[in-house]
Design a protein around this nucleic acid. Structure first.
Length: 427
RNA sequence: GGAGCGGUGGCAGAGCGGACGAAUGCACCGGUCUUGAAAACCGGCGACCCGCAAGGGUCCGGGGGUUCGAAUCCCCCCCGCUCCGCCA
């Protein structure tokens, strides 16, 4: 959520900032309007409550002093006020509820340095590593789904039989390498991040904290019987670890990482990226996440992006970093970098990580605070997160990049400690 | 799933219709004392919202209700613990 005080005091600035994301101003203006009315009604309500409290105190004292009929008169007066209080309170609650519902739908404002743009075509490429389009041999120009089926390490047909379209199944060395990628990704970030194994099913409240609800309910799997949601990313449970809690400034930044399965309905993307592993309902991912003081956030964003890039280097994959422009930034995002890997077989840049800074947008929804060493009270933390490694697309890029002339695939050496001796994927 | 007990400030733990935002202890912050520290003593110490401020309001798991007045009484829900059942 945005800070209602900013909407209150700097409405036009907020409108201008949201415009950079292509967000129309009507909802913010309506929020501003409701806020004005809400506060007026709440002030009236509080005045009446104050009177009731005073009178109740008097009634108590009169009773002790035996002034019964005087007390009776005061009591009648308070009863009248009670009706007014109830009406004002109901109105104030209703307005507050409307305001919150609106606020939950209004996106975060972008960081001032976010480049202007309308959609993904306007995302500037920040840097490119190890990419030379002419350097690929014909044996690398084979899409991973063909190599995967030929080697018996990818079995899409049976996955579809078991679970329906857009589910996949890895087998033998392919399954082993997938698991190895997760373990390796966790181990290489263990220097700075606490390993967590979070729940994969979460409550409506938890899925609201990170911004997926209420707006994007169609994208998530919902277990109606128990009113639980399948997480689309470990960001969801990890962000809510600290919900409703207040941390000490000295403990920040707090860093967590987790392997988790991720579930996405991919509503509206039927027919896109239908081959292979590029877009599936269920996949594995290792996520890294931090709670930080606002001043710490910019450096953390760079550090976390750097961690993803160096992982791609170690896997021998060509990749690039792009910055997400205003119009392409997600609902909750303040600033984002995408890391994309080049897959020579399908000749595509595949997004394997999106490292993002959410400013205090998620922390305000979730109530994650810290106590500053100077000054009074509490402040909201800033949250950041990114995929340390999204398995299927990295798997695809490895199978295409490291395919050899004989049709087998070389497993990157950094994974060998995790593959039970498998160094080559072969039939 | 069934039965019993419980959910109060950072923690422990009183309060069980009015003077309670809440005793007390610990923790924490400031001071006295001390070469320094500890101990002792003195003082302070919750969060959130509205307000320039003065000040006001809300919060005793959550939601309803009773009452002039609810942490305290009633109803529903959630969570925890113990026992039973079931189960990887």
């Amino acid at each position: 959520m945005l800070d209602i005080r900013r909407i209150r005091n700097e409405l036009e600035a907020v409108v201008a900032e949201l415009d950079r994301k292509g967000v129309p101003s009507d909802e913010v203006r309506r929020a501003h309007d409701i806020d004005v009315r809400q506060r007026a009604v709440a002030a009236d309500r509080d005045g009446v409550r104050r009177e009731i409290k005073e009178i109740s105190g008097e009634v108590g004292r009169m009773h002790r002093d035996g002034r019964v009929e005087e007390a009776e008169e005061r009591r009648a007066r308070s009863r009248e006020l009670g009706d007014r209080e109830a009406r004002l309170a109901a109105e104030a609650d209703d307005l507050a509820q409307q305001l919150r519902a609106l606020l939950l739908r209004i996106p975060n404002t972008p960081h001032p340095d976010v480049p202007s743009g309308v959609d993904e075509r306007d995302n500037p490429v920040l840097r490119v590593h190890g990419f030379d389009p002419d350097a690929y041999a014909p044996h690398q120009r084979v899409p991973h789904w063909e190599t995967g089926e030929a080697l018996g390490i990818l079995d899409v047909e049976r996955a579809v039989k078991i679970s329906g379209s857009m589910f996949t199944m890895l087998r033998r060395g392919g399954a082993t390498m997938s698991r190895a990628l997760c373990q390796w990704a966790l181990d290489r970030n263990a220097d700075a991040f606490e390993e967590v194994r979070p729940p994969s099913l979460v409550t409506t409240e938890t899925l609201t904290n990170t911004g997926q609800l209420p707006k994007f309910a169609d994208d998530a799997y919902h277990l109606e019987r128990d009113d639980l949601w399948c997480i689309p990313t470990a960001e969801v449970p990890l962000t809510s670890i600290g919900s409703g809690e207040t941390f000490r400034q000295a403990d920040l930044p707090l860093r967590y990482m987790a392997y988790s399965p991720c579930y996405r309905r991919e509503a509206g993307s039927a027919g896109r990226d239908t081959r292979g592993l590029l877009r599936t309902h269920e996949f594995d991912k290792v996520e890294i996440l931090a709670y930080a003081r606002p001043e710490q956030a910019p450096d953390l964003l760079e550090e976390m992006t750097g961690r993803v890039e160096s992982a791609m280097v170690d896997l021998g994959l060509a990749h690039r970093v792009i910055e997400i422009c205003g119009g392409d930034l997600g609902q909750s995002h303040h600033r984002s970098y995408d890391v994309e890997v080049y897959a020579p077989g399908c000749d595509q840049w595949l997004e394997v990580s999106s490292v993002s800074w959410f400013s205090d947008y998620q922390a305000r929804r979730a109530g994650i605070r810290y106590r500053p060493e100077q000054g009074k009270g509490t402040e909201l933390v800033h949250t950041l997160n990114g995929s340390a490694l999204a398995v299927p697309r990295v798997w695809a890029a490895i199978v295409e990049t490291h395919r050899r002339e004989d049709g087998t695939v070389a497993v990157p050496e950094v994974l060998w400690p995790y593959t039970r001796g498998i160094t080559v994927l072969e039939p």
